[in-house]
């Protein structure tokens, strides 16, 4: 299908840039790990709070890292008139949105896996119920990437991009933060049974669907104007 091929062109471009520049792996990921360490400093590890609140801390770390990843995804297009190149490439704007969002989602998911391992390691948590955690994380990641890409292009090319993006994006992704944390809490047996995670996974899926649709529709007009 044409849409899929065009989508992959954009995704592959962004991933290739990442493979060569290593900004996400070399800068965003260490940032996420430092956030995890900071939480341990803030909440005394000896009091046993860390494993109980680990899902929330994990998703806060992911959210902060996602902000950087989205910022990076659009910083790529700033230099050398790359955005004009993208605009003139003749690719479908919907495919462009999906492609950029997919690249962000792939990087975020890798980040989540590594940060998740960090949580298990640092916060003394036993992973279980992967059949719940993986769909929850996937749905949350797609939602974050879609909303992030949409707001990324909204703030793209503005002189106040770095400070505006968090203010625009964080309130919007509040439901992802809530849903993913509750789903993880239920999945890990910290708060209710793993089965209780499903309504949250459905909510995350709904969020992802809404923002993918919105981005698909709005990306064209936003890119034109940028």
């Amino acid at each position: 299908m044409n849409l899929l091929r065009e989508l992959w062109v954009v995704t592959a471009k962004d991933l290739r840039i990442e493979a060569r520049s290593r900004v996400t792996i070399g800068q965003v990921l260490p940032f996420g790990v430092i956030v995890l360490l900071l939480f341990a400093f803030a909440l005394d590890p000896d009091r046993g709070i860390l494993p109980r609140v680990a899902p929330g801390l994990f998703w806060v770390a992911v959210l902060l890292a996602a902000l950087l990843a989205v910022s990076r995804a659009f910083a790529l297009e700033e230099a050398n008139g790359a955005r004009d190149g993208l605009r003139l490439s003749g690719l479908d704007t919907g495919a462009m949105f999906l492609g950029k969002a997919l690249a962000v989602a792939i990087q975020l998911f890798v980040l989540e896996v590594i940060l998740g391992a960090g949580v298990v390691l640092f916060y003394d948590l036993t992973p279980r119920a992967a059949e719940v955690l993986v769909p929850a994380a996937l749905a949350a990641t797609v939602g974050l990437a879609a909303a992030g890409t949409l707001y990324g292009v909204l703030a793209a090319g503005l002189r106040v991009r770095e400070t505006l993006l968090p203010l625009l994006l964080l309130p919007v992704v509040a439901p992802v933060m809530l849903g993913a944390t509750r789903a993880f809490e239920a999945g890990l047996g910290l708060n209710g049974a793993p089965g209780e995670a499903w309504p949250w996974v459905e909510m995350l899926g709904l969020f992802a669907l809404i923002y993918t649709t919105l981005g698909f529709l709005a990306f064209g007009p936003l890119l034109e104007e940028a």
Binding site: V172, P199, L206
Partner: peptide, 23 residues
């Protein structure tokens, strides 16, 4: 144009936030 799109996204987001917080 950007503001108009942002306003509509915010408006769509309100019920989603409400639903999640309510749950």
């Amino acid at each position: 144009k950007r503001c108009a799109i942002a306003a509509l996204i915010a408006f769509v987001d309100v019920p989603v936030v409400h639903l999640s917080v309510n749950w």
